[in-house]
Simulated scan of single mutants.
Amino acid sequence: MKDKKLEANLSLVGSRILAGLNMNALKYLLPVWMGALTGVTVRCTFAAVAFWVTGWFVKEAPITRRQRIGLLCLGAFGMYGFMFCYLLGISKTTPVSSAIFNSLQPIWVFLISVFFLHERATLMKIIGISLGFGGALLCILTQGSNDLAHDALTGNMLCLLSSVFFAIYLILSKKLLEEIGLVTVMKYVFGGAALSGLVISTIFGWDAPLFTDATHGMWHWMPWLILTFILIFPTYLSYWLMPIGLKYLKTTVVAMYGYLILIVTSVVSYIAGQDRFTWEQGVAIGMICLSVYFVEVAERRR
């Protein structure tokens, strides 16, 4: 079991580092080279095809019709809802702000566990949650729109909502992974997300200058290279690695690894000029880190 836990932790380290780089890569693409809605559809469709192809070579136990429908619904609402808010949000705000709200996932996991799974709330956990919300509120109220974030308030609210969707996805997929194989879960979840994406993109239209420019003989190698990186590594490989960690570790521990996303995104953002550091961001990051510390210390003491 120790080997499995080591494998799970290493898988999460790799997955979250790729997820951190994903925020910077998406900020480069969105919305100049690709609209957010089209980006969600492209990512989900690619992942669905990749995991279904992988399923041809990985033999897992068959699942029931009820399980299949449950996975498709989880993908159509949970995974698509997360990616919809996440990509739309990051196209309007900065990567670091997006990562700050992503770090709230352990708080949402705990709150959902309290209200729906009857977990006990303690004083330390309440203090932690208050600090987390205070940090998020500070970031929302103090960040103004500028050349790096054309609609920071809307973007931050969408990123906040995306972290709620992902916390719900973590809890539900954790339960499903106890009885269903990893590849089976991924191919049906992304299959459901791809169906939602294709329907919504068909209704609201496709927005991808990267593709239309290429058809007119203009080759922009950098955005194509970044899109390829996003599809192969943060989309396919990262979501391949994450369920390994989710299967052997607690959901709150998996959510804690979101701090790696914040670290990687912050470092790359400041180097690449995608964000400018402010004291409000620093205080918000500190408050959210403290909030999850309180929640986790309370959890371990219990």
Rank of each mutant, 00 (worst) to 15 (best):
Ser163Lys: 11
Gly135Thr: 01
Phe166Val: 07
His220Thr: 04
Tyr259Gln: 06
Ala136Val: 05
Ala152Glu: 09
Asn146Glu: 13
Met186Phe: 06
Leu231Ala: 02
Asp207Gln: 11
Ile140Met: 12
Leu153Asn: 02
Ile232Thr: 14
Ser130Ile: 12
Ala121Val: 15
Met218Trp: 04
Asp207Gly: 02
Ile200Ala: 14
Asp151Ile: 03
Ile171Pro: 03
Val183Leu: 08
Ile226Cys: 04
Thr212Met: 05
Trp224Met: 06
Trp224Ile: 02
Ala152Met: 12
Pro209Gly: 04
Trp221Cys: 01
Gly191Val: 10
Thr212His: 05
Phe165Trp: 14
Asp151Val: 06
Leu198Phe: 14
Gln143Tyr: 12
Leu172Thr: 13
Tyr248Thr: 04
Trp219Leu: 10
Ser173Met: 15
Ile171Gly: 06
Thr252Gln: 06
Tyr259Ser: 01
Leu225Cys: 09
Ser163Cys: 11
Thr215Pro: 02
Gly205Thr: 05
Ala152Phe: 14
Phe204Lys: 12
Gly155Ser: 05
Thr122His: 04
Leu246Thr: 15
Gly205Arg: 05
Met157Gln: 12
Leu172Ile: 14
Phe165Gln: 03
Phe166Pro: 00
Val164Gln: 01
Ala167Asp: 11
Ile168Ala: 05
Gln143Phe: 14
Lys247Leu: 10
Phe229Thr: 01
Leu131Pro: 03
Leu158His: 12
Tyr239Phe: 15
Glu178Lys: 14
Gly181Gln: 08
Met222Ser: 00
Ala193Arg: 01
Asp213Gln: 09
Leu131Glu: 01
Ala255Asn: 01
Thr154Tyr: 12
Glu178Arg: 14
Trp240Arg: 11
Leu182Trp: 10
Gly197Leu: 11
His216Ala: 06
Leu249Lys: 08
Phe211Pro: 00
Gly245Phe: 02
Ala194Ser: 09
Leu148Met: 15
Leu172Ser: 10
Glu179Phe: 09
Leu138Tyr: 01
Gly245Trp: 13
